[in-house]
Amino acid sequence: MYRLQSDVLYFCLIKTLSNMIVFVNDTPVRTYYGAKVKSAVMAYFRDNNLPVKTIVKEVRDAYGNLIDMDGSIRANSKIYLKI
């Protein structure tokens, strides 16, 4: 019984942790926990039927700072693309 409960809890925890929404050009994008900027950008392309090889001129954060595609993002981060 204990084992079953812990499995259920673990499953719920993993589901909660691994689901992450970030905002690309103010559009919510579903990605996974631990994703980097480039993952969110790819997810945005995917959701908007843009080619995966679309050239990204720059990415900025909610404060207007330039950010690199390898940068880490967290849940509810807002990033803005210039393509």
Partner: peptide
């Protein structure tokens, strides 16, 4: 790999877990 998980538009109930 994380490129596939982000770039390909496929249906998946589980959002996935990066194992770092």
């Amino acid at each position: 790999n994380s490129y596939m998980s982000s770039a390909f538009k496929f249906q998946h109930e589980d959002p996935g877990t990066d194992i770092f």
